[in-house]
């Protein structure tokens, strides 16, 4: 059932992609301006190298970091709608890097498209010239690489293939679930980051915990709980033979890095490896 939706969505975004081909609206989010500067900087450098222009949304606001699941939450979704509408005004697809921002924007966008209750009330608050009805196509940077630029094109652009590096992809939760709305990849058997790893010349290491939670914000409430999660993930990746683990999420990065107790693995943002492979890392 969700597969069909995905196919439809794929075709729709395919068509939309033709409109404004290599120019995208870009939403960095709070953390990419502070603790996760590398995620942002290497992402931009690499995109430029690949011919994709990321235009940062002007005067963007925090997306709220978590998607408010309660049906009656409207106010907490408004800043996301403003961002979505800004991309609509420029007739551009909206690209995000942070998993959490991506999750919030994609789900709020889905609400604006399919949930009449949220759509009506959000528009009543915002009083836009033209009501926003979910017109913007929200894609993650990885989706841009896969579906717009293409991993073959990426592979051809690689100047420093990361030969022999065994890399474990860490997906976490927010990119994949709920799959009906995120439509990012198969939620139980994703391949996009592994395909990315192959494209930059490294060897992907598949392990069972790649789509299990790192603990997320529980680190603020119960550090022990986060440490338990992280140990399970890292030992699984390590036992599978990984040298390195990569992620797209600053909070996953934090947990995997700061809350590892038993097993330790170097953690990097995927954009850093991308920049390295494309030879744009030193230029900074």
């Amino acid at each position: 059932m969700w597969l069909f939706d995905e196919i439809v969505k794929f075709h729709i975004t395919e068509l939309e992609g033709q409109v404004n081909h290599m120019k995208y609206s870009y939403y960095p989010g709070c953390t990419l301006k502070t603790k996760a500067k590398e995620l942002d900087r290497y992402g931009r450098l690499s995109a430029a190298k690949l011919g994709a222009e990321l235009e940062e949304i002007e005067n963007w606001q925090c997306c709220g970091a978590v998607y408010p699941q309660a049906e009656d939450e409207i106010a907490t979704k408004l800043s996301a709608v403003r961002t979505l509408d800004a991309a609509k005004q420029k007739d551009q697809e909206l690209v995000t890097l942070c998993s959490a921002c991506h999750h919030v924007l994609k789900r709020v966008n889905d609400d604006m498209k399919n949930n009449e209750y949220v759509r009506t009330r959000a528009n009543n608050y915002l009083k836009l010239d033209v009501p926003y009805e979910g017109e913007t196509s929200v894609i993650h940077y990885l989706e841009m690489l896969r579906d717009r630029i293409g991993f073959d094109t990426l592979k051809a652009a690689v100047v420093n293939p990361l030969k022999g590096v065994k890399i474990a992809a860490y997906y976490g939760c927010l990119l994949l679930r709920p799959s009906g709305v995120m439509a990012f990849d198969d939620p139980e058997n994703p391949t996009i980051i592994e395909d990315f790893i192959k494209a930059i010349g490294a060897t992907p290491i598949k392990y069972s915990q790649r789509n299990e939670c790192c603990g997320g914000y529980i680190a603020m409430e119960d550090k022990g709980a986060a440490q338990k999660r992280v140990d399970v993930i890292l030992s699984s990746a390590k036992n599978a033979g990984a040298d390195l683990i990569i992620t797209a999420c600053p909070l996953c990065m934090y947990n995997l890095d700061a809350n590892a107790t038993e097993s330790v693995l170097p953690v990097k943002y995927f954009t850093e490896l991308l920049a390295d492979a494309l030879g744009v890392k030193e230029e900074d």
Binding site: S208, Q209, E212, S236, N239, A240
Partner: peptide
């Protein structure tokens, strides 16, 4: 809820 493929067993 989940079957995990670990080194020499299924968790």
């Amino acid at each position: 809820g989940k079957v995990s493929v670990e080194q020499d067993h299924l968790h």
